[in-house]
């Protein structure tokens, strides 16, 4: 099968990969770039576990062809912690027991990051809307919603 060169940045580091034409970004991140933080749940766009940020926008990596990401900046959950210090969202998820099996967590974190990057002080309604494309079969969503709101409060605290 034809291999196609693709260059993109992944969590700030430059990547150059030869990918199968037509390969999804999810397959390339997990199988080539060694980043298994995005999860493949449904490959149908319905679970959100594969959510990543492409140029700052929340996207489904299972429905995105890797070739269309040439030159793009990709952010995944693997890039959230800095120098071993957890991102405020990760800390809030941990403190608030917002992860049980954890399968949905990377997608939830990216959806939450996409929200807080634009809306630092979201309402509960904003949070519910922001994670509306992400399915969680364990937590019943409430701890996740509370964790995102707590992370937003912690952020504005630090900024003040």
């Amino acid at each position: 099968m034809a291999k196609v060169p693709v260059q993109f940045s992944l969590n700030g580091s430059e990547k150059a990969e030869f990918v199968d034409s037509g390969a999804t970004l999810l397959a390339v991140l997990r199988g080539k770039a060694g980043d298994t933080s995005p999860k493949g749940g449904c490959h149908q766009g319905t679970c959100g576990a594969c959510s990543v940020l492409i140029d700052g926008e929340l996207r489904l990596s299972c429905l995105t062809l890797a070739e269309t990401c040439e030159g793009a900046e990709i952010t995944t959950t693997a890039g959230l912690a800095e120098a071993g210090v957890l991102h405020p969202l990760q800390r809030a998820f941990m403190d608030g027991f917002a992860a049980q099996c954890g399968f949905c967590t990377p997608g939830m974190l990216m959806a939450a990051k996409a929200l807080l990057d634009r809306t630092p002080n979201p309402t509960r309604e904003d949070v519910v809307e922001a994670i509306s494309g992400n399915v969680c079969r364990c937590t019943g969503y409430e701890p996740i919603i509370q964790a995102i709101l707590a992370a937003a409060r912690a952020n504005s605290h630090n900024a003040a």
Partner: peptide, 9 residues
């Protein structure tokens, strides 16, 4: 249409 990620695409 869909959730936020679907709408971005």
């Amino acid at each position: 249409v869909g959730g936020p990620a679907v709408r971005n695409q």
